[in-house]
Nucleic acid binder design. Structure first.
Lengths: 348, 348
DNA sequence: ATTGGCACTCGATTCCGGTGAGTGCCAACG
DNA sequence: CGTTGGCACTCACCGGAATCGAGTGCCAAT
């Protein structure tokens, strides 16, 4: 329904509007872009684009602004990702250089992405539900406290303090440790949880205090494992929302709230559908069910070899954002992250 | 220089302005507050307050607005803390109920305070620099990785993964563990750091690989201990800044940035001087050196028995805030927190 | 010291006409 | 049929004038 040149006009409108934040008129288009035609012709094309609801006019006689649908078409068909400059690439590299554990890598990644794009950057923790437990360690702290440490093959280390009433001698401690070991080591977290649940359900003589202490510990382990199943986010750059405040008609309150809550963004990132390159975008009104109708989220899958699962890096910003640049940045950062995690994996 | 009634007028102006955000005029004061005098008299008082720079007029003929200095006098001499309702007290209690470890307690505390005040709530981690190390644990993860765990008498547990190239058998591991133990256990973190530094500096035969591995581990321990010295914050409610946006002439960008950076707020909270009740306030321009000239910070000390040191709970909001209510909330939450931590301590 | 009165200030609101960017439509043209 | 120049029309955006009114400062009277 809309001509080839019409699409080029749409592209021009998106680009100019993102640049200037001003509604763009037919004259401005022929001036700034080398279409070989007159303004009147562009106007005809614009009328078509308006029929298709790809652009809209704020008032009867003013330039046009892309609609969310227009941005969608732009992203899907028109946008050529703008490759990063070498300066930008080396910036990423220097951000990520010298990182130690997983937490550190993800924190640095999110910082790199926010400084690259000027948007709110988001990194999803790899889901640990499928990670395998490699170590369970118990350390007595004294005073009836027991430190429980769990390590998985994804390199995540996690600990929790349990209150047991008694002190244990080494052999007893060894026995409990061994039992937990057979229950968990080598098993995926999910499965480990089930096995612990089953073990706890097994009716023990409740009169034997040592045995119940084992159960207390097992429960602490289970609680901590449950923690592993919860997805988490690392974010940075929320202050940037204040800069692009003018793009949010209402206030940035819902955005900041979503950032603090995490859960909304987590669900949103989880539901986005990636293309064959692992890139995904959710634009404006498409985020209405999440209460973020004036924002866009870009995301890219990254590989977490050890976890046999994928997670996402992404960013959040106003609908009026520079999609080609930001998509390229997200993709690049995701690739760097994948590579770092692979090196880390093979380095073991 | 300014009469007793003058101070009451200042109080009225602060209260009304906080309520309405409108400059308040002499007429409004006699209407809303039962001074037994006429508007003209109030005007005379206001002229004096203006001479003292406690209030100011946005334009030649409009009501007055408290200056930062005015707020300061209000907080120091005029404000009677508004005691919390029983509903609010039980809200705090229910927030804090069932909390487990230190992290959890602080997170819940900060949530309680933000929901109570509608401002950005801040809790300073107790400084661990003086905490004593009670356990050093080493766990081999395989692949040349060593998990280092440090526990202090404040209940903080912290871990780090170090890359050592070799595998150790149990006796060797025991020896290293014992050495680290004698270096650290029972010592304050600060002192432990020095002892490790001294130990590393001692020229060892660099040809003995096992020995150098010990040093690698010791370095990892030192790094982690260094982490203990860094103060940290837990914050919540940053979205609230968007609600009170109108109170920030510029944008809320610097505020959000400070929240994300933490370090500025950390320094600010550290430098505030508390009164005999442990309460402190830093108002408006007083925060200029920190780039937060349009904000106020309230804080209250809370006790951390085990750490033999004090830390702070506080909140951050626009200068135009309800000081009596917010100060009371901060104080109440600080007291709850102190009590919880004491119970925890004695419960050992 | 307090008060009523009064002139005055100045931001806010409204109205008005002019300006201009931009559109929609149409007739003409290749 | 797509393209183009022309043209009337719309409407947001000034800038200025007029009005309003809340609030002040000052003063003379109590």
């Amino acid at each position: 329904m809309v001509s080839e040149r019409g699409l080029q006009v749409l592209r021009a409108i998106v680009q100019d509007y993102v640049d200037t934040r001003e509604p763009v008129g037919s004259k401005a288009i022929v001036d700034r872009h080398a279409f070989g035609v007159s303004a009147a012709t562009i106007r005809n094309d614009m009328a078509q684009l308006e029929d298709e609801e790809l652009i809209a006019a704020p008032h009867t006689s003013s330039g046009r602004v892309p609609t969310d649908k227009g941005y969608r078409v732009f992203v899907d068909h028109l946008a050529e990702l703008r490759p990063l400059s070498t300066a930008q690439r080396s910036a990423i590299a220097s951000f990520l250089e010298g990182s130690s554990d997983l937490d550190d890598v993800l924190t640095r990644t999110v910082r790199a992405l926010t400084s690259l794009t000027g948007q709110v950057a988001i990194v999803q923790y790899p889901s640990f539900a499928r990670a395998r437990v490699t170590h369970v360690e118990l350390v007595q702290l004294g005073g009836g406290r027991m430190l429980v440490i769990i390590v998985t093959d994804t390199g995540r280390v996690s600990q929790r303090v349990a209150s047991v009433r008694d002190e244990f001698d080494d052999s007893e401690l060894g026995r409990i440790r061994a039992e937990l070991g057979t229950l968990l080591v080598g098993r995926p977290v999910r499965e480990g949880l089930e096995r612990i649940a089953a073990r706890i359900a097994t009716p023990d003589e409740p009169t034997i205090p040592r045995e119940t202490a084992t159960i207390v510990i097992a429960k602490a382990v289970a609680e901590e494992l449950e923690h592993f199943r919860q997805d988490r986010l690392v974010m940075a750059g929320s202050a940037n929302l204040a800069r692009s405040e003018a793009d949010f008609r209402g206030s940035i309150y819902p955005l900041l709230e979503a950032i603090e809550e995490q859960v909304t963004i987590l669900r949103l990132m989880g539901e986005m559908v990636a293309d064959d390159q692992g890139l995904a975008a959710s634009i404006g009104r498409e985020n209405e069910p999440f209460g973020l109708a004036e924002a866009s989220v870009l995301a890219s899958d990254y590989d977490v070899t050890g976890a046999r699962t994928r997670a996402r890096v992404g960013l959040l910003g106003p609908t009026r954002m520079d999609y080609p640049t930001n998509l390229a940045a997200v993709r690049a950062v995701a690739r760097y992250l994948t590579r770092i995690l692979e090196e880390d994996e093979s380095g073991r």
